[in-house]
Computed example of a mutant assay.
Amino acid sequence: MKNSEHTLGEKVKEIIIEIFIIVFAVTLSIWLHSWSEHRHQQKEVSVFLANLRNDLQNDVESIDTEVKAYHKTNVEYEKILALTTFQLDSIYKSKSKVNFPIHSHGQTLNVGNYEGFKSSGKIGYIEDEKLKQKILTYYQIYVPAANDVDKMYTDFLFKCFDKEIENADKPEKELYSDPKYKKTLEYLVKLGRNNIRVYKENTKPLAVELIKEIDKELGK
């Protein structure tokens, strides 16, 4: 600006060029930083999705195990319900006992990786909106629903145990012919059927679908 050899037009031109260079440098720096941060975020997403895929694969296997267990215990409970007074007498005369199967249904599905990623506020890093919504639906709706139906089943199972304890001083055959006990066992069977439906028609299909969606996302 103090150089008298330059005209006003030349000075203005040089100022504009310098401003442009500064703006360009700052913009480029911001863009490179954003690009680097975005790249880092997407690496975190890829690691998360890979871990989530393993969790979902384990969920599918656990679901199959739970469904088989429900089927097996339901068959045994239905056999108990079908026992007549004559059959019960015959069992106890031969000094045999009625087999009452027990299978505890607790936390079946894996939520550790999801909860860790969610609590760190990184779920928003997933750019595929459909995939993100399916993940949220699975872990926020389907997993809690599966846990709830398992808990309800276990509660009714303990009602059967309570009834057995209450009748501990009576012949066992009276327990299995007791209307209240049989009604409790009937509800246990119904709950078992319902839980099989929840796992087979809701939870497992979405888990399988998510595995396929994640495979596509990781294969990009």
Score class of each variant (00 low, 15 high):
213 E>M: 15
167 N>K: 15
216 K>D: 11
166 E>R: 14
169 D>T: 14
190 K>T: 06
88 L>M: 15
218 L>R: 13
172 E>V: 07
87 Q>W: 02
145 A>R: 01
87 Q>G: 03
49 L>Y: 08
170 K>A: 07
184 T>I: 10
85 T>A: 13
6 H>C: 04
185 L>S: 11
12 V>S: 13
98 V>D: 08
80 I>T: 08
220 K>R: 13
186 E>R: 08
201 E>I: 04
76 E>A: 15
89 D>A: 02
188 L>G: 03
49 L>N: 09
142 Y>H: 06
220 K>F: 05
197 R>D: 09
171 P>H: 09
120 S>R: 14
22 I>P: 05
37 E>H: 11
72 K>E: 14
49 L>P: 03
127 E>I: 08
144 P>T: 01
110 N>H: 02
63 I>D: 00
119 S>L: 09
28 L>C: 10
161 F>K: 08
137 T>H: 11
204 K>H: 02
90 S>R: 07
198 V>T: 10
109 L>Y: 00
82 A>G: 12
92 Y>K: 07
97 K>W: 06
83 L>C: 09
105 H>L: 05
93 K>C: 01
174 E>A: 07
70 Y>L: 15
152 M>V: 05
183 K>D: 11
49 L>V: 10
142 Y>E: 01
57 Q>L: 14
210 L>D: 01
149 V>H: 03
174 E>N: 13
11 K>T: 08
149 V>D: 01
180 K>V: 08
54 N>P: 00
170 K>C: 03
196 I>A: 05
112 G>N: 11
46 S>G: 06
148 D>N: 07
194 N>A: 14
185 L>P: 07
195 N>D: 09
94 S>L: 13
60 V>S: 13
130 K>S: 14
178 D>L: 04
114 Y>R: 03
83 L>N: 08
102 I>C: 00
172 E>T: 11
118 K>G: 01
53 R>F: 03
144 P>S: 01
95 K>L: 12
215 D>E: 15
28 L>P: 06
76 E>F: 07
91 I>D: 10
78 E>M: 13
152 M>T: 09
203 T>S: 05
115 E>F: 01
118 K>S: 13
47 V>E: 11
104 S>A: 06
218 L>T: 10
99 N>G: 02
82 A>W: 02
76 E>W: 03
30 I>F: 15
